[in-house]
Amino acid sequence: MSGQTTAEELGPVTTLATPIRLDFEFTPGVAQSRFLRGLEKGKFVGQRCPTCGKVYVPSRGSCPTDGVPTTEDVDLGNVGTVTTYCVVNVPFAGQSIEIPYICAQVLLDGADISFMGLIQEIPTDEIRMGLRVEAVWVEPEELTPSLASVRYFRPNGEPDADYETYKDYL
């Protein structure tokens, strides 16, 4: 603002910027760090429960059902199934993806829990439960221990998964 501007030119003050800011050190813990380090290598790493055999991704380090530590790492593939989805049509502040876009729960093959992913390369009116998708990663030199390493999921061309194969994961 120029010191030469008069109060009349500026007009009365009607709004006040009141940003709320939080600076913090985040640690995802040992278990999720393994998942994040897997992302840095371009793969999804889960962990299996020694009691019930379920594979969690990302693993929290213990099985929520059995309460025991999960110690066995499991490399999951790049392919999974859309179990449910949402088409986002509403713009909001800070939105980085052009609307409409699809946000879906993806159940990776071999995993017993789904996680949220962006779906691209399919018209929004063709998204459906059971769609088979594959992860599209950033370039190798751009991989970081972050979900930003996964650009999105896209249809991989396989026939839709049978409802029976994912009905327990909804």
Binding site: V13, T14, T15, L16, A17, T18, P19, I20, R21, L22, D23, F24, E25, F26, T27, P28, G29, V30, S33, L36, R37, A93, P145
Partner: peptide, 17 residues
């Protein structure tokens, strides 16, 4: 060892006075 990183969470509110 666990990873850690610096994060910033900021909401750019503007209030009508």
């Amino acid at each position: 060892e666990a990873l850690h990183a610096s994060h910033v969470l900021e909401y750019p509110y503007s209030r009508s006075v």
